[in-house]
């Protein structure tokens, strides 16, 4: 359970961090897209008999950068690119499952999360990725915020927009890979986006919004874990429903 809380804490910090910029860029769907691609990574890992987290990271990083290349070419809309890659990732995962013929049960734990099954090796990888995401985020905060809000003006500020966008894509891929173990592939988007849009309703300032959404995510993960433990419910789903209840509560309070 200690490992579960530690993994949950790391994810609760980095998911809204990256999610804040996804909301600005109107790219919330990319988390769901990469989470489906992550399933392919899991299937490859299980098929090859190596830690699926490692193959998941490789698959999501490569795909995230392909998405960025297609997006920057502007020949196809980002929405269409994501609509193609999301089912593509799932389809490839299903084919690999069919070829392997036997690890359906393991894959289901990645679909819906199994935070209580986090291994010591997983913890080290999650911690390493978490620190990497946080460090890069702090170093490039100005570049990320400028590029997300106004790409053209950012260029005239001397920012290498293309490089920054690729770095950001790698951070999304890392975050999705880490979060999958906690909430599951199908629920990752919720952890990245719901805390951000919850606080956006009441907070006045972007930086402040990031900090408060992290606090909301941490509260959601911890309450969700405790409730799921005592009520014998799936952890990932309980975390997401806790976050949604925060959103509804905030919306109602704001209207009063």
């Amino acid at each position: 359970m200690v490992r579960a809380f530690l993994a949950g804490l790391i994810v609760a910090i980095i998911a809204p961090l990256i999610g804040s910029f996804l909301v600005v860029r109107r790219l919330s769907l990319i988390a769901d897209t990469l989470s489906h691609v992550a399933l392919t990574g899991v299937a490859i890992g299980l098929l090859m008999g190596i830690n699926p987290l490692i193959t998941t990271i490789l698959c999501t990083v490569i795909t995230a950068n392909i998405i960025e290349e297609l997006h920057s070419n502007k020949r196809i809309s980002t929405e269409s690119i994501l609509a193609m890659i999301l089912p593509g990732g799932l389809a490839l995962a299903l084919i690999l499952i069919s070829v392997a013929n036997g690890f359906n049960t393991s894959l289901i734990t990645y679909l819906f999360g199994s935070i209580t099954a986090v291994t010591q090796q997983d913890i080290w990888i999650i911690l390493g990725l978490g620190i990497t995401v946080l460090s890069i985020f702090i170093i490039f905060y100005r570049e990320f915020i400028y590029t997300s809000f106004d790409e053209e003006s950012a260029r005239t500020s001397g920012i290498t927009v293309r490089l920054i966008n690729h770095i950001f894509m790698v951070l999304i891929a890392f975050t999705v890979s880490v979060a999958m173990k906690v909430v599951g592939a199908l629920l990752i988007g919720a952890l990245m986006v719901i805390p951000v849009i919850t606080t956006m309703q009441v907070i006045k300032g972007f930086r402040q919004n990031i900090f408060v959404s992290i606090a909301i995510a941490i509260a959601g993960v911890f309450i969700g874990l405790v409730v799921s433990y005592y009520a014998n419910l799936p952890a990932g789903a309980t975390i997401v429903m806790t976050l949604i209840s925060f959103f509804i509560f905030t919306s109602l309070v704001r209207r009063v």
């Binding site: 909301v23 600005v24 860029r25 109107r26 809000f149 106004d150 907070i203 006045k204 300032g205 972007f206």
Partner: peptide
């Protein structure tokens, strides 16, 4: 892009 974002 800023119409929906709380940025000062």
């Amino acid at each position: 892009t800023t119409s929906h974002i709380p940025i000062t």
